[in-house]
């Protein structure tokens, strides 16, 4: 893949923050990814589209250290990166917001944000006060409003949960946030808030990879879009050089004469 020329100054002629070269992933006889390459630039929102089973989630799990690639190389800021667990990826500032959100519903918002990275006091005990304080500050930085950081996550709406998951992903100097269909399960009225949150991350110069089926999402927040088809690279373009119907065509595996498609969304 070649980094296509971009008009937006921030993403042009820069070294990618993450680069995948020839990544393949096999699950037994199943080939989930076959020789996929891509790059992500600093401060860029990259959309990833593709039909169900195209390999989007698998590719992101490779990026976030949950899966190991069967073949191919990952580069982080130009250096080869080897992740044995999400912890390794996280150390470099790569965070993933999982499709099923991966929140503990029985626990408070603040506790979820710092799950696995709990603040401790000087005796090594869990520091509840610090986690509440940090959570409040962080949420207000992200302009996420909640009644109280002590609220249990199971009491929240889908959009609020998504916001908490994003807050967790960005709680510690994230450089890259990967979001797997963050709007898929949301009520329409909450979608816009999550998309604005993504813009907010971009303003903070965090790179975002957004997987979505919704063209509205892609065309509202993304700078560039990459299409996967049956586990392979299919197409790629800066947003301003393509159209919704062309991208929908890519999802369905066609590159010719897309103009006629009337519907906006592919489920």
């Amino acid at each position: 893949m070649v980094a296509t020329g971009k008009r937006k100054s921030e993403t042009s002629s820069q070294r990618p923050i993450i680069e995948g070269r020839g990544i393949s992933k096999f699950f037994g006889a199943v080939t989930a990814l076959n020789d996929v390459s891509f790059e992500l630039y600093p401060g860029e929102v990259l959309g990833i589209v593709g039909d169900n089973g195209a390999g989007k989630t698998t590719l992101m799990k490779v990026l976030s250290g949950l899966y190991k690639a069967s073949e191919g190389d990952l580069l982080f800021e130009g250096q080869p990166a080897h992740f044995n667990s999400p912890k390794d990826a996280r150390k470099l500032g790569i965070e993933m917001v999982y499709q099923d959100l991966a929140l503990a519903g029985n626990m408070a918002i603040a506790e979820n944000i710092y799950l696995g990275r709990e603040p401790r006091n000087k005796f090594g005990f869990y520091h509840l006060g610090a986690s509440q304080k940090m959570a409040r500050k962080h949420l207000s930085n992200l302009k996420i409003h909640v009644k109280s950081v002590d609220q249990k996550v199971e009491e929240l709406s889908g959009g609020q949960r998504q916001a908490v998951a994003i807050a967790r992903a960005t709680a510690f100097d994230a450089k890259v946030v990967i979001m797997d269909e963050p709007t898929a399960a949301l009520a329409i009225r909450e979608v816009g808030k999550v998309l604005d949150l993504i813009k907010n991350l971009k303003d903070r110069h965090i790179s975002v990879i957004l997987i979505s089926h919704r063209m509205d999402d892609i065309f509202y927040v993304c700078d560039r879009v990459v299409a996967l088809f049956q586990g392979t690279n299919f197409a790629e373009s800066p947003l301003e050089d393509t159209s919704r119907s062309e991208v929908i065509g890519w999802i369905m595996g066609t590159k010719e004469n897309p103009g006629e498609l009337s519907h906006d969304r592919v489920e």
């Binding site: 929140l103 519903g105 626990m107 506790e111 401790r120």
Partner: peptide, 21 residues
């Protein structure tokens, strides 16, 4: 303690606990 909170977290959602490192 961190252990105590993690015990609750694992009970709430083991997958979330795992991906949280």
């Amino acid at each position: 303690t961190v252990l105590g909170r993690r015990i609750y977290a694992i009970g709430g959602n083991p997958e979330a606990a795992r991906v949280s490192g």
